[in-house]
Write a protein that binds this DNA or RNA. Structure first.
Lengths: 186, 186
DNA sequence: CTTGACAAACCGTCCAGACGGTATCTTAAT
DNA sequence: ATTAAGATACCGTCTGGACGGTTTGTCAAG
């Protein structure tokens, strides 16, 4: 019998804790490290407790997905408020998020998700849907070929950060960013 | 006792068959579908037979990787021979490969690999090394920020094709390609 | 008769999820 | 204010199956 059983119940907090741990574990040990046993144990909860919050493993991953896309959406909204130019506004906000992600704590969570995303057809579909929804939402301002190209480049940079496949020095990074912002405006 | 045991032995052919099947399976059922049992069975070979050719699962995945990067290298070399302009020559060849990949049979193999790549640190490192080697090889012609940006955009497009996250009509595709080729030259 | 190319059965481990409980909280009638 | 009656939030164990890898056996070719 663990402490969690006795302490004041805070289901929302436990839920959050489980998501955080799942993200951390997949960073440290790869996607294979995200097992129900490992997550529950590292979160100080029994396996049964984990399965109470998330009825199966996919639900846990989807929870992670929703959590992170939620954060992304808020960050994008915030970024868009600062941008006076309508055309390409969403694209620039998206770009900012990718550039800001590097080195941040949240980036870890995203790395996890990217990997899980590609592996699991169900999550792949969820991401597809998210992109489609944004495309619809900003069809008036961000549907040009130029904007699309910028977003693809941002995804490529994101992938490069995850794979660590390119070593890009900060100066080059900034140059590219400026060029991409430029492309989003024309 | 299966037929394979009796037919004329063609180890190289069996090896190739195993690689093809592994690629197909991961496309149809995701990375999780690539199990030793499934691959060997679908290739009409026993599990022992598979493990004769590839001593363990990672060796199978590495075999797949080498097979596909080999093809990529040959295609790039071919494409580079057609290009008279030195600056950005490799980048444009890389770009051509990504654009050509769409809808092709080989694309399936690459999709597999991308997923496996992200999941397995060992393969991630292998890809990192490949990129680093190319960067060294073409440092004189393709190391500008513009070329890097083009390659990142190509990777983004590649990712989009895998995830099917963006629906890009052929006309837009061609526009983007032209723009990227342009960027690689300046 | 040795060796390469398989087959087939088997092993140990790991893992998702089920299940049957117990403790704590909420609600509402008394 | 009490308290009975659920509802919610967990715990701990078990199981069935999958999976990577091993071992032993078989057969054909050189």
């Amino acid at each position: 019998m663990s402490i969690a059983h006795h302490r004041r119940k805070q289901p929302e907090r436990v839920r959050q804790q489980l998501l955080e741990v799942a993200a951390r574990l997949s960073l440290e040990q790869g996607a294979a490290g995200v097992t129900l046993d490992a997550v529950s144990q590292a979160a100080g909860v029994s396996k049964g407790g984990l399965l109470h919050h998330f009825p199966n493993k996919m639900a846990l991953l989807e929870g992670l997905f929703d959590d992170l896309t939620g954060k992304l959406e808020r960050t994008i909204a915030e970024e868009m408020r600062k941008d006076a130019v309508a055309h390409g506004r969403f694209t620039r906000a998206y770009l900012s998020c990718v550039f800001a992600l590097q080195g941040e704590a949240d980036a870890q969570g995203w790395q996890v998700l990217t990997i899980a995303l590609l592996s699991e057809p169900q999550l792949r579909e969820r991401w597809r849907q998210w992109v489609a929804d944004r495309a619809d939402e900003y069809v008036g301002t961000d549907s040009s070929a130029g904007c699309l190209l910028v977003r693809l480049a941002a995804d490529g940079l994101w992938l490069a950060d995850i794979l660590r496949s390119h070593e890009i020095d900060p100066a080059t990074r900034q140059m590219m960013r400026a060029q991409l912002i430029d492309l989003s405006q024309q």
